[in-house]
Simulated scan of single mutants.
Amino acid sequence: MRVEFTRTVANPSLSARAGEIKDVPEAEAVKRIEAGHAVAVDQPRTRLRDRLPGLRKQQAKAESKAPEEDKPLDKLTVEQLRAYAEEQDISLPEKARKDELLKVIGEALEEREGTEQ
C-alpha cells in the first residue's frame, strides 16, 4: 500500500522522511496510518483540527443545535421565518414583509398556547 509519511520515521525495519511516499506492506501501512505517522496516498489528508478530540466535541454540539432554536424570531431572516412557519403548520401570506410575517406567526403561536391550556 502506498503511503505518504507525515513525519520522520526511523527504526530498524523502516525509515522515511516527512512527505516521502513509499510502498509498505498493508499491515504496516494500517499501523502507521492509525498512529498518525502516515496517510494513504489515495485518501485525502485530515485537517489537524479534525484530529483534535476537544474540537470534534465542540463541533458536534454546534452542529446538533438548530440555529432557529437559539435565535428569537425577530432575528431570523424571511426565509428562516417561512421555514419555521412551515414546520409549525402556520399559513403565511404569499407576499408579506418580515414584520407582517412576525405578526402572523406570533398570533398563531399565542392562539395555540391559549388552546393548549
Rank of each mutant, 00 (worst) to 15 (best):
R45W: 05
R32P: 00
A27V: 11
V30C: 00
L52V: 13
A62V: 09
E116S: 09
P44E: 03
L73K: 07
P53D: 04
S91M: 07
E28H: 00
K75V: 07
S64W: 07
E94K: 14
T8R: 07
R97G: 10
V39N: 09
A18M: 00
P53Y: 10
T115F: 11
R17M: 08
G54K: 00
V24C: 09
L92Y: 03
K75L: 13
G54C: 09
Q117C: 07
A66F: 14
G54E: 15
K31N: 10
D89N: 15
P53H: 07
A108W: 00
T46R: 15
Q59D: 08
I33T: 10
K22Q: 14
E86T: 14
R56P: 00
Q117I: 14
D89M: 04
S13Q: 13
Q58L: 15
K65H: 15
T6F: 05
A35G: 06
V24H: 01
K98V: 05
A29H: 06
A96W: 05
L14N: 02
K95T: 08
I21E: 05
R112I: 01
P12N: 09
Q59C: 04
R49Q: 10
E86V: 12
L14I: 07
P25K: 02
P25M: 06
V39H: 04
A27W: 13
R17S: 08
R7K: 14
Q80E: 15
E63I: 11
L48F: 14
K57G: 08
I90M: 03
E26S: 11
K103H: 11
R56I: 01
R17K: 09
A60Y: 00
K22D: 01
F5W: 06
E116F: 12
A85Q: 03
V78F: 10
A29V: 01
A62N: 12
G19H: 00
T6R: 08
Q59F: 08
E113K: 14
R82G: 06
R17T: 09
Q58K: 08
V41G: 02
R2F: 08
L92C: 07
S64V: 05
P25W: 06
V78H: 02
F5Y: 03
D23T: 08
A35R: 01
S15C: 05
K98S: 03
R47T: 14
V24S: 01
L76P: 06
K57N: 12
R51M: 09
Q88G: 07
A96D: 02
P93L: 10
E94D: 13
T6V: 11
A29Q: 01
R112G: 01
I33V: 15
R56E: 00
E68K: 09
R51F: 01
Y84L: 15
E26P: 05
A83P: 10
P93I: 03
V30T: 12
R32K: 14
D89S: 14
D89V: 04
R32D: 12
K65A: 13
S91D: 12
V78Y: 12
D50H: 15
D23V: 04
P25C: 04
E63W: 05
A18S: 12
D23Y: 06
F5Q: 06
G114C: 02
Q59W: 04
Q59I: 08
